[in-house]
Design a protein around this nucleic acid. Structure first.
Length: 107
DNA sequence: GTTGTGACACATT
DNA sequence: AAATGTGCCACAA
């Protein structure tokens, strides 16, 4: 078993755990996945995003709380809308991490 | 098998 | 303060 829970699956698992109304940074997800160095891999994992319904990429932001330029997976506007629907206040492309960054301890 | 690139993060200049 | 360089890992050619 445990047929290679290869990087991606781990990352997806972590992203899936992000509760509603919260956002997580790539580094955060990477760290929860097991390695802070996976930040880039996390971005790649979301890039392929095989399950956009279970992997809300829009809940994942860089360490600035900002969305990447290439993030607009359907329009930056779309992203803002989705996050606001979740209860996250989004300013164009950035959110207040201090307020909305996911804290695993809370869950 | 090696090289290059990438939706990042951190350190240093 | 901003820009650059470096580190790390995975995938594509």
């Amino acid at each position: 078993m445990a047929q290679e829970k290869n990087s991606y699956e781990k990352i997806y698992e972590v992203v899936r755990q992000i509760p509603k109304g919260c956002v997580a940074t790539y580094g955060q997800v990477a760290a929860l996945a097991g390695n802070c160095r996976w930040a880039r891999v996390v971005g790649y994992a979301l890039h392929v995003n095989p399950d956009p319904e279970g992997i809300p990429c829009y809940r994942v932001v860089n360490r600035e709380g900002r969305l990447s330029d290439a993030f607009a997976f359907g329009g930056v506007n779309r992203q803002k809308l989705l996050l606001e629907e979740e209860g996250v206040t989004v300013h164009e492309n950035h959110v207040d991490l201090s307020t909305f960054q996911w804290k695993k301890s809370v869950f």
